[in-house]
Nucleic acid binder design. Structure first.
Lengths: 328, 328
DNA sequence: TGATCGCCATGACGATTACTCATACCAGGT
DNA sequence: ACCTGGTATGAGTAATCGTCATGGCGATCA
């Protein structure tokens, strides 16, 4: 192999490791796991044909070959950054904003906010894309996204959740405050704002015995059949009630919310649902809060990197905040 | 997405397209298909968020955004090249040569040559890796390999086979000559030397009715059961006789030569085999030439990029040539 | 006008890569 | 002996990459 087989990602990771002297620290900073960093470094060393880092018990040291590659990695990054700046100077669509969102926010919040924004600010163009929260955070840092709607799922053990980061309010918010549960410890710190802070609910078929009440007692969830969400990495899609104190009976597994909700409507089982989606359920589905058991609160947050937000992004942020307020 | 999502491969492909004004020409030059080039450009354009190339019926033109990226792509390539040069100046193992080889050569030629070389030049260190011929050619061009043993499989329609390239002999060979069947039309031209030029053979079980003769008539291959090789891209692993004029009965599919040959020994069927592997068959297998039908000749060639070969690589080339001579 | 050619785009598919979680191993400290 | 901090690697899954085949478009030619 040769250094021409290296990837930009590997060079970026190597730089972060070299600057921090630790795979683990670089992983946190970049939003990867230590394992991914280790593999990227190994791949780069294979490509180069030399050890770039000397492993020690308390981290790593850059070798002579590593210093050569580091210098060039920095220069490559500068070329890419220069290209980005030059491209930014080109005429482009005014008011273009790139928004990322995690799955549940897609159906329940983003469309409403975009429709409102189109009415109040027709000049703002928004492109959106769905991703897991960890990928959204990486994209913010990489400059791929301007804004992201992220979920706080700290109780589920997200990567990078060890040390709470710091967040900031909207432009002009003043003193930084610590935000509880922000799933990110990277640098530079992201700025965030809480959009909603609600407890999870359960979607039941309208003709289900539990559908007649105003709330479900957690004990009544025992013995039910569940429509489980797909579980992958940090993206634990909802399905079984998180506080269920028995082994769940999983009748169906689906990733798609539409499929899940229609399965509920058809009487195939129950599923956990965030309140943001309550307004999107089809006929034949009731959404109910759960009493008792542990608090299953979840926050939905808006995150961004650069302060101040450009006007178009600020308008979008306001629209998202307003839409979330309606849902509260 | 952002330009930071770009890959070095995409930048390299974009440069080749921009310089040639054509996806198809760039594909030939780089050893890809037009389709792969098209996808790489599309991915890069998504990353950048702008069209880099203006499509026309007779090729492509670089856009304003494309010119910016092109300049930076060249600069990035220069940084990578500089790193390679600086790394080359580091103390490393003397006489290290990187050899690539296609599957059949691995068992039949390379081990013999390496053993000979170890005896005659113990200071030469060789690392080898297996790959399909098209990937080997790409690796030579990328500087990942110093030498490659490649197969000429032009009758099987290899990518880039349209225009024969030019080849040269070993150091000091003099005037360039056209080499028939070289599966490569990229620039700069590779230098090649034919190692063997033999006809394919058939491996039959020792107790098979066809095993008693000194050769097999092509008509006798009808109705036999075959052990087929895996077929993937340009790497058509051998199995069914290429000139068979009936629909083959495939009893087994295996990629591994050892497995294939032991299946033959067990009486499970016949398989096509290059002569280079004749000396590696286990007990219970006979290898026979085939008479009649079309000529199923195949060349095994040595290829490299830079002239003159460094001393260690030249020694390896000689060892491979000598080993091939024994097999002729 | 229809056929042909050259060129890029895209569907479908299989192989490879990238990343995660879980676990193993090592060194150092208490 | 146990704990902590750190890197390496097995296993599994999703995404990406590249190929072949095919489609669409424009230009040229008979």
């Amino acid at each position: 192999m040769a250094i021409t087989d290296a990837s930009l990602v590997a060079l970026r990771v190597f730089r972060a490791v070299a600057e921090r002297g630790s795979f683990t620290a670089a992983a946190v900073a970049l939003g990867y796991t230590q394992s991914a960093v280790s593999r990227q470094i190994a791949a780069l060393e294979r490509a180069v044909g030399a050890d770039l880092l000397e492993r020690r018990h308390d981290g790593v040291r850059v070798t002579a070959a590593g210093r050569i590659v580091l210098r060039r990695a920095v220069a490559v990054a500068e070329q890419i950054e220069a290209a980005a700046h030059e491209l930014a100077g080109l005429p482009g669509p005014d008011g273009a904003v790139r928004l990322g969102w995690f799955t549940s926010a897609g159906a329940g919040l983003v469309p409403r906010a975009l429709a409102d924004l189109r009415r109040t600010h027709p000049g703002v163009t928004v492109t959106t894309r769905e991703a897991a929260t960890s990928a959204l955070i990486r994209a913010l840092r990489a400059g791929s996204l301007d804004l992201a709607v992220i979920a706080t799922t700290t109780p589920l053990g997200l990567p990078g959740a060890g040390t709470p980061g710091q967040g900031h309010g909207l432009p002009g918010a003043g003193t930084p405050r610590r935000r509880h549960g922000l799933p990110d410890a990277g640098m530079p710190p992201l700025r965030t704002r809480v959009l909603t802070d609600r407890s999870l609910m359960v979607a039941v078929p309208a003709n289900h015995p539990l559908a007649g009440g105003s709330a479900i007692d957690v004990a009544q969830l025992r013995g039910q059949e569940w429509i489980a969400g797909h579980s992958s990495g940090d993206e634990r899609l909802m399905g079984v009630w998180p506080g269920l104190d028995e082994r769940p009976v999983i009748a169906h597994v689906a990733r798609d919310w539409l499929a899940k909700l229609h399965l509920v409507a058809a009487g195939c089982g129950l599923t956990t649902i965030p309140p943001v989606l309550a307004g999107t359920v089809p006929d034949g589905v009731r959404v109910l809060p759960v009493r008792g058991g542990s608090d299953e609160g979840r926050q939905m947050m808006l995150a961004w990197l650069h302060q101040p937000l450009p006007p178009a992004a600020a308008r979008l942020a306001e629209a998202l905040q307003a839409a979330a307020g309606v849902l509260e």
